[in-house]
Design a protein around this nucleic acid. Structure first.
Lengths: 337, 337
DNA sequence: CTGAAAGCGCTTACAG
DNA sequence: CTGAAAGCGCTTACAG
């Protein structure tokens, strides 16, 4: 039999009101009474029912999180960052997946309407979500986590794709490369243009320019990286470095270069973007631009909690900076004979 | 202003009882009345408050899930499997992480006591969890997902590590290898001994035996794989194949062989275990024993839901079989000169 | 410092 | 077929 506040009150010979007061550390409770109540609580192992407290107070101390899917290699880090700060503050995390399309969104918006959580974290939300009427109507605090660089419809945290691209260019230039190629992400993604523009920035700062024939569009798969390199090798101008817009593409680039008999980093340097677990285990290990995924998760969760506490939502997106992780796929070029 | 059942009742000119009845599709409601109520529900966009329903009914339609951490490479698949079946059935998923140690477990057991969910999924639970008094006291339905092969304290789903080990041996033998080495997981893990025993089984079935000097203990890191190979190469007997107890270790084995100038698969074949995303991108791509992680998640979730529906917990662990994924790290050996 | 009562938004016997 | 009332387990004015 579950012990309730009524049972605690009975045993401590006080009213439920008083028990509630000591539970919530309100002032104005006689010290001796409080001690007695606490003893009963400890003895019975009483924990207030989350549901009942929620109904009475109108809050759930639970945060919803909608993610496109949870198998993406970088999702784990984001999730862990979120979970860490939420748990530290005693909040629950109600996870929803948009992997089943419209059905998922239906179920999800039901939960919104059912007030199953106090606030919401949206990771790279499908466009449909931004138009969910319930979200706007409900006045639910929302924070978006998005590295796609779209104009946010909600307060958001992202990373600095443009500076990351610039850092990639600088690193290649600094290590003696001169003819830089790029395999981009899909056209139309904000992060693709940001990373590419940043790469341009970095090259331009050095007083150089990118050869447009060395910019190939990929689609974030390793296949696209390999195909791009093979094409470049067959028909393009010479190059001594490749910036791939994500690590998977970079892995494909490495595979393509290997097939063609080009040594990395001696003949060609390769740099990726993301720093997923894979990056440390390619051959050679991949230099890459680290996305601060865990920090983004933490930051988003903290912001949401602040809003729940009454803080106004920040008007500008919060940006967590990228960083350069140097491994072995970049390094000194083969000394010209 | 949120619309409540009282508001719906008022607008439809019936009692809350009747609204509740049509909401829950009870029989014995006049057809015309039901239509009227449904119209009001549609017009107002009314959704019952999850908290209120939960309090009245005593269930939350939410399942808790405790995981050791969410950044492990194979966690995503398990989570996705769980999420898919839970969402399809309209259940919520309340995710908890044990990554902050005792603190996490405290917060977690509070939620158990607070009846924040109807049932619980435990992934490779820390030993502390199995002794949580609340779990036993609360009578909460629990299903464990564990590939560590420990004797389960709860109904559980696992995979067949032993058969997986045997399949690895068979594959190596079938492709012409004769001197098989192994880099195991840490001593004391149930899965380590299962995979090793299975490997023995496979070798024995062929009428052969394992050379004990070719069995090296690793710790599931790529470093341990590389170190093991280097040691074997330096001081051990000859070998032409390596079975690593997980893919990360196998990646280390590949790195060690490369440093030593041994070609894979020509000189040495390598097979891993798990089939994490990394496995498809090592050089060469890794043949491995696939763990059915997503299916394990699905199966566990389905079982838990069945228990919530009143089914008795299965007495024996449910086993989802592994499968062999052949890539390029195994294949024909160099023809003996 | 303390308690009786109303209320949070539902469901469920019970009575008609 | 329908509704008034009690109950789920808390919190919170309000009164003393």
């Amino acid at each position: 039999m579950r012990v309730t506040i009524a049972e605690v009150a009975r045993r401590a010979r006080v009213s439920k009101t008083t028990v509630s007061r000591v539970l919530n550390n309100k002032a104005d409770v006689d010290a001796a009474t409080a001690v007695r109540v606490r003893e009963v609580i400890a003895a019975t192992g009483y924990i207030p029912s989350a549901g009942a407290v929620g109904l009475a107070r109108g809050v759930t101390r639970t945060v919803g999180m909608l993610v496109p899917g949870v198998t993406w290699p970088w999702m784990g880090e984001v999730l862990q960052g979120v979970a860490d700060v939420l748990e530290a503050k005693g909040y629950g995390l109600l996870l929803s997946t948009a992997s089943r399309g419209a059905d998922s969104l239906d179920g999800f918006s039901r939960r919104v309407s059912a007030k199953a959580f106090d606030g919401l974290l949206l990771v790279e939300p499908p466009d449909a979500v931004r138009h969910l009427r319930v979200l706007h109507d409900s006045g639910l605090p929302v924070v978006m986590i998005d590295d796609r660089g779209r104009r946010p419809a909600f307060p958001s945290v992202g990373t600095d794709n443009r500076r990351g691209g610039a850092a990639a260019a600088r690193h290649l230039l600094d290590t003696g490369r001169t003819r830089l190629a790029t395999v981009t992400g899909p056209h139309g993604f904000g992060c693709t243009s940001d990373r590419l523009n940043g790469f341009h920035d970095g090259v331009r700062e050095a007083g150089l320019a990118l050869d447009p024939r060395l910019i190939i569009e990929g689609d974030f798969t390793s296949e696209s990286g390999e195909a791009a390199i093979l094409q470049l090798l067959a028909t393009g101008p010479e190059f001594d470095a490749v910036f791939a817009h994500n690590d998977l593409t970079a892995a494909g680039v490495l595979a393509g270069l290997r097939k063609a008999g080009r040594a990395v980093p001696e003949d060609v340097a390769v740099i990726g973007f993301d720093d997923v677990p894979l990056a440390a285990h390619t051959q050679p290990p991949l230099t890459t631009i680290h996305q601060p995924l865990r920090e983004m998760g933490e930051s988003a969760a903290r912001q949401l909690l602040a809003q729940l506490a009454g803080a106004p939502p920040p008007e500008a997106p919060v940006i967590v900076p990228t960083s350069l992780v140097v491994r072995e796929s970049t390094g000194a070029p083969r000394t010209a004979g």
